[in-house]
Design a protein around this nucleic acid. Structure first.
Lengths: 325, 325
DNA sequence: AATGATTTGTCTAGTGTTTGTCAAGCCTTT
DNA sequence: AAAGGCTTGACAAACACTAGACAAATCATT
């Protein structure tokens, strides 16, 4: 079952959705003119094309454009940074934040594949070695694109920790430590993004009774990566609160993660309540292991159930498109 | 060691990215006019050029400019320090740090900032602006010492958020968001420390029923700052788990934070249980708002109650001293 | 203490480069 | 038919470059 998930998420990457230029413009905050100019003058990306010659950008292209934009905002000239790889861009931008030479130690290490990274992480967790775990995650984040990081490392890791926890291979304490580190890492990931001025807002949280926040965090990271402005509210939040914030900030989407009890009657009520409190124009997206259990209610209130981050990305994409076309 | 890195990174990367003058200006705090003037008059650096004659600065150049600026800020005149090498500059500046100017420098920053920083943080929290909150904390952490950061910013901030939460000035959602960011920030702080090989180990957590983990995190940061190796296990952990980890890693100290109910009979039992499970040589330190409520039990099991981080630091110093002298 | 010389950050003028923006003309999608 | 994507070519604003100027501050000498 675990293996299944790993393989699955691999396939997902191959057939990844590609984005038209307008969407990329909104996601990166760059105008379509600039995107085309950068391609023409510096070949910063080489998007594939449709049969009718329209540009189609991959997640990686978008990631690069985003980073380039960030670099340019910071004062670099595009002609200078254009030829840098994604990793180089990361280290250049990191340098700015933490001073020079901070990322030096990281570059030396091996070009390990994903399974090795997961195993290294598990080892660190077993040894209560938070620092190493954090380092592994950080290294990984500079070596792969964000969707890859989430799909191939974070999610498998979380599942593996969950499985080991259930079958007693690791202790509750290990799981807690891992959660603390991963949580902190994901919060950082979300905050590293600088959404463009007119980016739509998404609220991410788990409702009352739901203590597992990793799902909500992953949703947050995913949304941030495709250009949304993410307000992450953490776990165990009364729906009244969620509704209030949503209205207050005029958010377009509320994303909730449901992990454990798949038959909580209180949660059923909460969903209905939330629906009443939210304006019609606001979309509710629900994900997580136990979300299936509430399918009837979710249907009733017109919420969308997503099974993985790819679906979430697609859903966000659709919502954004509708608003602007 | 820094020199090592400088030379290394220069040699290894023949074709490293170089920074344009605008970015260098931002990174060093020098105006572009000054940067050019210093080059023209004293040849402080000799940046390479593009084909069109624009300056390109290496990391080394930037480091030198930064140090020169620091020296000038401290009262040296540029004509005097211009010809110094990076190593010379370091030793000059190191002398100053322990000298008369050090304290003045610190107090200057602190003065103006602390209350402003707390207020800025509160504003960000009210606006659900996690990113700004994080930025404020990060900037603060680079401008003051860690004890100061904890005592003067983090703790007041946490209390203020708590107060505002109680009196309804902010929403539960604000509090959650603030917790998520502060938590993540503190976890990072802990992990930034590299304890020495033979550093004594401290376990930090909150026992079952205690959901507020900030106290435990603050304890962790404090311990890490005074050289302990911190294993942070997060909130709501059964005492059996805590005991198991402690024995497993041969930790010297267990630190627990108790925040809310000050009369939980289950927690009383847990304390007694924990005491039974731990070897005599292991010290138990308890802190937090509600710790007072369990004074009798804590006395009975020989636990130490600390009221603030200063006491915690003192306690840790004492314990460490005993073990090594 | 006054005077003159030096130091140093800031700025202007004139020139060349970089870069975001756009128009024209054509094609595709809806 | 309207909207939007494609390419090519053009343009103006922003920016970096040099050389030289200027004024405030600092230092040295009478």
């Amino acid at each position: 079952m675990l293996l299944d998930k790993l393989l699955n998420s691999d396939k997902v990457m191959e057939e990844m959705y590609k984005y038209p230029i307008k969407v990329v413009s909104q996601m990166t905050g760059l105008s379509v003119f600039v995107i085309r100019a950068w391609e023409r003058r510096y070949n910063v990306v080489t998007p594939s094309r449709t049969e009718t010659n329209r540009r189609l950008y991959s997640q990686v292209d978008i990631e690069k454009l985003r980073l380039l934009n960030e670099a340019v905002q910071k004062g670099h000239n595009i002609s200078g940074v254009a030829k840098l790889s994604i990793e180089d861009l990361h280290s250049v931008l990191d340098n700015e934040k933490t001073g020079p030479f901070a990322s030096e130690d990281l570059s030396l290490d091996n070009f390990s594949d994903v399974t090795t990274l997961v195993n290294k992480s598990i080892e660190a967790i077993k040894a209560y070695d938070a620092k190493t775990l954090d380092t592994v995650l950080l290294k990984a984040s500079s070596k792969m694109s964000q969707p890859q990081l989430i799909e191939n490392l974070i999610i498998p890791l979380v599942y593996k920790v969950g499985d080991f926890w259930h079958d007693g291979t690791i202790r509750v304490a290990n799981e807690h430590l891992a959660s603390a580190v991963i949580r902190s890492f994901l919060v950082n990931l979300i905050e590293q993004h600088t959404p463009s001025e007119n980016a739509p807002i998404i609220i991410s949280a788990t409702p009352r009774g739901q203590d597992h926040e990793l799902g909500a965090l992953i949703a947050g990271v995913t949304a941030a990566a495709v250009g949304w402005k993410v307000i992450y509210l953490g776990p165990n939040l009364p729906v009244e609160e969620i509704a209030a914030v949503t209205e207050n900030l005029e958010a377009k989407v509320v994303a909730l993660s449901i992990v454990y009890p798949n038959d909580d009657p209180q949660l059923r009520k909460d969903f209905l309540n939330l629906n009443k409190m939210l304006s019609k124009s606001i979309s509710l997206i629900v994900g997580g292991r136990a979300a299936d259990g509430y399918l009837d209610v979710l249907d009733e209130i017109g919420a969308v159930l997503v099974k993985n981050t790819k679906q979430l990305r697609a859903e966000l994409e659709a919502l954004r498109g509708n608003k602007y076309n």
